[in-house]
């Protein structure tokens, strides 16, 4: 039995010293790689425990730091939102420029170089998508019934014009009627060769179902996919309208009819050209 407090303390110190010496022995043994087997066993049991605990601690730490940095995160979020909007705006502007560039290229490659054109932007359309609003008017030289096209692809005719704006009547509009010719050859990628080989004449009109083509000769060898080219004195030049689809084949009919699938997507038009001369 220990007799006094000093003796207890001394014993305590000796025990700690003893374990200290043990730790030095362990370090020496470890340095000569004698512990690999024991370490592998301990690692097998306890590393998963340590890993799970570390994961939990890390997740909690990131959660707490997010909470404590909340105001900074909010500021960063708002800043990123603004940058994202700016990029969207720049992107939209770039897309507009790209579309204009493509339209100009098409116009230069396929358009009638002898005529004068005014570049116009589509600023809106009617609810039934039969009319387009343009940002050019009489101050730009636009007049009533001027032809609107992209390259040699027909868009419509000016149906209403004022100083700063005008309205284009598309082929799908009820009041649109034009004379056309149907061809198979002579138009490569909407480029029209001269002279053009006409298989038949016909008339196109706008309807709620689309662009209707009628009065096609029953004797002509017309098929779906043949190209419809506008050949009307009011237009004054050959302009590609689209392709024939849904051609009727009733032998009892005196003429054939069908529909025209427009070559231009009117819904996505942004840049068009108005022929002023």
């Amino acid at each position: 039995m220990p007799k006094n407090k000093t003796e207890i303390m001394d014993r305590g110190g000796v025990v700690i010293l003893g374990f200290l010496v043990l730790s030095v022995i362990l370090l020496l043994l470890d340095s000569i790689k004698n512990f690999n087997g024991v370490r592998n066993g301990i690692s097998f049991i306890f590393e998963p425990v340590s890993y799970a605990a570390s994961n939990l601690g890390t997740n909690l730490k990131s959660g707490v730091s997010s909470f404590s940095n909340f105001s900074k995160l909010q500021k960063d979020y708002n800043q990123l939102k603004i940058e994202s909007y700016e990029k969207d705006i720049n992107n939209a502007y770039f897309l507009v420029l790209q579309e204009e560039n493509n339209s100009l290229k098409t116009q230069i490659n396929l358009g009638n170089k002898e005529k004068k054109y005014v570049l116009a932007k589509v600023v809106g359309s009617s609810l039934n998508h039969n009319f387009l609003n343009l940002n050019v008017g009489t101050k730009d030289g636009v007049k009533l019934n001027d032809t609107v096209s992209i390259g040699n692809m027909y868009v419509g005719q000016i149906s209403s014009v004022d100083l700063n704006g005008s309205v284009v009547r598309l082929m799908t509009s009820k009041n649109s009627t034009l004379e056309v010719i149907i061809t198979r050859k002579g138009v490569e990628n909407a480029a029209i060769a001269d002279p053009i080989e006409a298989l038949s004449r016909a008339v196109v009109t706008g309807s709620p179902d689309g662009i209707k083509i009628e009065n096609i000769s029953t004797t002509a060898d017309i098929k779906d996919g043949d190209i419809v080219v506008i050949n009307d004195s009011r237009i004054g030049e050959y302009l590609v309208l689209g392709y024939i689809v849904g051609l009727t084949n009733n032998p009892a009919d005196t003429s054939r009819s069908g529909y025209v699938s427009a070559i231009i997507d009117y819904d996505n038009l942004m840049t068009v050209f108005v022929k002023t001369e």
């Binding site: 890993y51 605990a53 890390t58």
Partner: peptide
């Protein structure tokens, strides 16, 4: 003890 040590080591 091993769990707590690893947990607090990762946390703080």
């Amino acid at each position: 003890t091993v769990f707590l040590d690893s947990f607090f080591c990762a946390l703080i």
